[in-house]
Amino acid sequence: MFIKEYFGGIFKAIKSLLTGMKLTGYYFTHLNKIVTEEYPDNRATLKMPERFRGEVIMPHDENNEHTCTGCQACELACPNGTIKIITKQEVQADGKKKKRIDAFVYHLDMCTMCNLCIDACPSDAIIMGQNFEHSQYERKYMKKVLNKPGSRLKDGVE
C-alpha cells in the first residue's frame, strides 16, 4: 500500500511537470505567438495612445499664438505645485492694459500626470503630450517654460 502511494505520487508529480512543460514547449515552437515588444528598437513605429499622459504641453498655432489667458485655474487645480504662472501687464492696441502670461513654468519633476490641470483649463490652452522619455542628467532641465518665446494670446480668447 505504501509502495503504491509512493510511486503513485511520483508519477503524478512527473505527469504534472510534463503538462507544464508541454505548454512551455508549445510556445517555444510557436514563434508567431510571442507578444513581447522590443521597446528601444521599435521607437520609430511606437505610437502612444491619444489620451496617454506623458507631459503637459501648450500647443501653438502657425502664428505662434496660444490660448492661455493666465487665469491660473491650472495652478490652483494642481495638487503638487507643479505649475507656476508669471503674468505681466501688456498694453493693447487700444491703449488699455491687460493681463497676459509672461512665463508658464512647468516643473516636470513634480508632475504626477493626474490630468487635473487639463480638466480645469477653461480655454483648452494646455493638453497632455505623448512623449514619455523624460530622463535628464540634471534637475534644472526638468523645469520648462511652456509658452514659446515671442508667442502671444490668440485674438478673441478671453
Partner: peptide, 9 residues
C-alpha cells in the same frame, strides 16, 4: 491551471 495549479510541487 496547466502550468501552476496542477503542479504537485
Amino acid at each position: 491551471d496547466e502550468i501552476l495549479t496542477g503542479n504537485v510541487i
